[in-house]
Design a protein around this nucleic acid. Structure first.
Lengths: 343, 343
DNA sequence: TGCAGCGATGTAATCGATTGCATGAAACTA
DNA sequence: TAGTTTCATGCAATCGATTACATCGCTGCA
């Protein structure tokens, strides 16, 4: 912010009006006459004036931005949600700040800083596994900006969320495999304490039970959504004496890691084992074999969360009523090559 | 930013000092005595005070953040660079704002807004294909925050950049294929007007010439870095009567798309054609077959760009000297399964 | 003893835009 | 015509932290 910039005073002088009129021409156009507005706009053009957001935000008692708390920016899954968020925010006048919650040093302290005020007018939280006190702080204190959870959420927390129907997704996956004729179906899970892991596993178990299929604990593999954990699960699968003929993976990344590692060991997918993923990341359609998966509308999740947050912010500005409605977006089974009838 | 928050005045009263002392205890700790500082810190703790950044930024005549201009947030390649940037910025006190340059509506106008002042203390630009006037604006006007280009850059532009050695990367790829015995080598390129496309193609041509290999224009395929364009190139390759036995792709995404599509057509990699990618994205090691590629240090690029920008910012604050030094980070050949001697 | 020098702290102006209140003119009503 | 409303605009206080400058007490040296 270099000095010597034209300020609102300069525009006012150039236009022959007061600073109040310039300000109003900008942020409340119908409060000035059409003629005056034109003159002011021209003066702004000529002087090259740009509003000083620090001054505006100070006076308006706002921060001028929202913060997105991302567990791992490097993960393409999240970056697509972020893309949806920036899209929805582009015309709102709010900046989009990002913070990686798993990034040293002292992430917790910095998050509290965002949460507690002054830096953000609202938060979108994509990571429900933050330290307990961080998220509850926003809950109990009455001095905090509105929060919307997206993708992940806190159980029994009343704050608004935007999610997909994870249980239904798991059911679709299991039913698809059963429809193909599989009777021995396993599940590769995400990180243990994650709400998505829990919900998808629950859906998988329910579907297996409904279909009267075996529910064997040694066919539920541990993972953490990553490629590497998918590869590790391939070894676990190979080590079994009595193997499932199909695996439903809680993320596409794990499915790819699983298939890739099996390939190295000479095991063919779907010939020897069928695989269904979750997410429908971009590579899924191009993988070898292309991946059967549960598609979720990532950009839409981001957009929806952003719009909901904007609504909460302006609502909070006007009065104190509470909107807690949560959105559950639909998922869809996409059948490709990685799933086939068992041999 | 809820009202009723403790402000610096409240802390000052609680500690029995002036607001100036509180301010100094926070931003210039050695200008207050150790005793006073302790008292102030305790008062801050008790009152729950948090600085109001809008007020601070107004007074300090700064924006308090940097902006990253990303061509496509949804692309995992960029999100990893972003991750490096947020990492380096985490302790700096600056916020990281993101803006997607290819996102409607009127992206150009919004970018100019960032560029021209007040919103950002500096910019990291990952997209050198912005409208001409946008980037030259930052060049000619003397009222603009410092800019660092990363990954991409503008030819003959003196502003600092952080890049990798793209020509060398291309050379490594071509030489590797030649070392395996390939004499017929093609190149799948990125979007035509992109500086990376140009530089990598140049490196590929130079290496082919050095090795005395054929340089056939019909073996240079058009692409745009995307998975889909890789798949399209597979069709182009199949349509040739006289095919190259190896392809160097300017991105891993294209390499994956290329291989995936060939697989659908029953063509085996590397049996019938060898493929080398560029980037070493995470999936490369897990693809089927795993991808030989040119690795570039994505997180490091982001980190380096961020540190360079911070240096420029504080330098600009102190005096007017210009640091234009540009960094070129090394690349590395990673040999995996997708490349093998020709049949 | 007296004064320069220094460190710690306080006083008050300042950053630049917004907005409550006041004003004056025009339009409308009775 | 006088009174009332409406609209456009100006005046000046205000948002909350920072910082140039002033002040005060001490130390040290002549």
């Amino acid at each position: 912010m270099t000095k010597g910039f034209p300020k609102i005073r300069d525009v006012a002088d150039a236009a022959g009006v007061s600073t109040a009129t310039v300000s109003r021409a900008l942020s409340a156009p119908d409060r000035v006459s059409a003629d005056t507005r034109a003159i002011v706009l021209k003066a702004i053009e000529e002087t090259g004036y740009r509003v000083n957001h620090a001054a505006r935000n100070l006076r308006r008692r706002q921060a001028g931005g929202i913060v997105v708390l991302v567990p791992n920016l490097a993960n393409p899954f999240f970056s697509q949600i972020l893309s949806g968020i920036t899209f929805a925010m582009a015309t709102s006048g709010y900046n989009v700040l990002i913070a990686d919650t798993r990034q040293a040093p002292n992430a917790e302290h910095r998050i509290l800083d965002y949460l507690h005020n002054n830096r953000a007018d609202g938060l979108i939280v994509l990571d429900a596994n933050l330290p307990e006190d961080v998220l509850s702080a926003g809950d109990t204190s009455n001095h905090h900006p509105p929060i919307v959870f997206a993708c992940e959420w806190l159980d029994a927390d009343p704050r608004p969320t935007v999610t997909i129907d994870n249980e239904e997704g798991a059911r679709l996956a299991i039913r698809h495999l059963a429809d193909l004729g599989h009777r021995r179906i396993g599940h590769l899970m995400g990180p243990p304490d994650n709400i998505l892991t829990i919900t998808r596993a629950k859906g998988a178990r329910a579907a297996l039970a409904d279909l009267g299929l075996a529910l064997r604990e040694d066919w539920f593999f541990d993972g953490d959504f990553s490629l590497a954990s998918g590869a590790a699960a391939a070894h676990a699968w190979l080590a079994l004496e009595d193997r499932p003929t199909a695996i439903f993976c809680a993320s596409d990344a794990m499915a790819c890691g699983f298939i890739g590692e099996l390939h190295h060991k000479g095991v063919r997918v779907p010939d020897e084992v069928s695989v269904v993923g979750f997410d429908d990341i971009e590579i899924a359609a191009h993988f070898v074999p292309s991946l059967t998966t549960i598609a979720q509308p990532r950009a839409l999740i981001g957009e929806t969360a952003a719009r909901k947050l904007l609504a909460l912010i302006s609502e909070g500005r006007e009065n104190g009523s509470a909107t807690g409605a949560s959105d559950i977006l639909p998922v869809q089974l996409v059948v490709r090559e990685s799933s086939a009838p068992p041999r």
